[in-house]
Simulated assay, not measured.
Amino acid sequence: MDRAVARGSREFVELGGVRLDLDLSDRRLGTGSTSLSVERIATGRGWVDGFRHASQTTEAHGRLHARVTESLRAAAFGGETAKDLALDMAIRDLDTHSVEAIGRLASATCGLQNLGADEGAALRTALRTLLARGFSVEVPQLAGTLGGSDVNGALTLEARQAPSAPVELGSALRASGRLAVAESGLAAGRLQKALALGLRPTADGALSAGFDFIEGVLHANGQAVQGGTLQAGLSGAELALGAFFGAGRPALLAGAAPVAPDGKPAAAPRAAEARPALPAPASASLPKVLALPPVSLAPAAFQGGLGVGVQRGG
């Protein structure tokens, strides 16, 4: 598509040079390759030039693995500018049957909206299994120039396989990350904000920060973070997830089938090892952080009606 324009009573969107390629071996699982490129996106608030997206998804031994790369040549919104942005992300070891079940539910319910009782139970079962089997997300590269400052970062998140249920978030999750920002392009006000957020000057004239979260202990810039805020946050998340899964106790995977490190069902824990039950939150609805809105590549419909024009090259 060479050019498309959508106008509403309050908004304007122009797309130019849109190319979409799909080569899927299994549409249910999304295995195969996809690519999307958009030469120009313009609205009343800003513009984007040279957006590229590509993904490759494979399945082996009951696990899904995906790699996503994205790049952006230049953009400007709300007085902020960006150029030469690049993102490289890998998602590994997602449980195939769980992803397939969630995909079927999303298709049947218009993006997991207004689920029936049986559908809600099926979604909780799929999510429990997905988390119990473990997975990892790695962003080895996040780079570009924002507002005149070069930015470079990386992030790793691992949800380890759960040998039994319930599982504590502190021991189930591992994460690490780093961020470096060139100090030379920062205005004085932004420099102070960066320092307040924890970035520290380095010998090469940059600002950097890093963190590691292992076995429930958080280190920021090489120093252990003290205090009960982190533990309180973990406990609150465990309670919310336990309520969503119908556990009524701070368990991420309460009710999920135990999984051994080799991926096979493991023996259930002895009664003496069970953790004491805690009161459940007043509501067992899906936590807001887990809400999954529908995703569409199409421009959103605007209030007041749309007028759409499409031009194709000769």
Rank of each mutant, 00 (worst) to 15 (best):
Arg174Leu: 08
Ala206Pro: 02
Lys264Phe: 13
His65Thr: 15
Met89Arg: 00
Leu94His: 04
Gly216Ile: 14
Gly236Lys: 04
Leu278Glu: 13
Arg249Thr: 06
Ala194Trp: 01
Arg270Phe: 12
Gln303Gly: 11
Ala237Trp: 08
Ala126Asn: 05
Thr229Cys: 02
Thr31Arg: 07
Asp150Tyr: 07
Arg275Ser: 06
Ala237Val: 11
Ser37Thr: 12
Arg45Thr: 15
Ala280Asp: 02
Gly255Met: 04
Gln311Ala: 14
Val18Phe: 13
Ala291Phe: 04
Ala182Gln: 10
Cys110Val: 11
Gly236Tyr: 10
Arg73Trp: 00
Arg92Asn: 08
Leu146Asn: 08
Gln223Gly: 01
Ala224Arg: 12
Arg45Gln: 15
Ala271Cys: 00
Gly198Cys: 03
Ala243His: 07
Gly307Asp: 15
Asn114Gly: 00
Ala159Cys: 03
Ile214Glu: 12
Gln56Ser: 15
Ala187Val: 08
Leu253Asn: 10
Thr125Met: 11
Ala86Glu: 07
Leu230His: 06
Thr109Asn: 06
Ala251Arg: 09
Asp262Ile: 00
Phe135Cys: 01
Gly16His: 13
Leu230Phe: 03
Ala256Arg: 04
Leu85Thr: 04
Val225His: 08
Arg128Leu: 14
Ser33Trp: 12
Gly248Met: 08
Ile41Ser: 10
Val38Leu: 15
Thr96Met: 09
Pro163Ser: 01
Gln192Asn: 09
Ala271His: 03
Gly314Leu: 08
Ala42Tyr: 07
Gly205Asn: 02
Val68Gly: 09
Gly144Glu: 07
Arg275Lys: 07
Ala132Thr: 12
Ala108Val: 01
Ala196Leu: 10
Pro261Asp: 11
Ala75Val: 11
Gly255Asn: 05
Gly185His: 09
Ala180Lys: 03
Leu127Pro: 10
Ala76Gln: 15
Gly78His: 10
Arg40Glu: 15
Arg67Gly: 02
Ser171Lys: 03
Ala188Pro: 13
Ala6Pro: 07
Ala187Arg: 10
Arg19Leu: 13
Gly227His: 05
Arg10Cys: 13
Lys288Arg: 08
Pro299Gln: 11
Gly62Arg: 01
Gly304His: 05
Pro265Thr: 14
Ala101Thr: 10
Gly147Phe: 08
Val225Met: 14
Gly16Gln: 15
Ala188Gln: 09
Arg190Leu: 11
Met1Gly: 15
Arg270His: 02
Val137Pro: 10
Glu70Val: 06
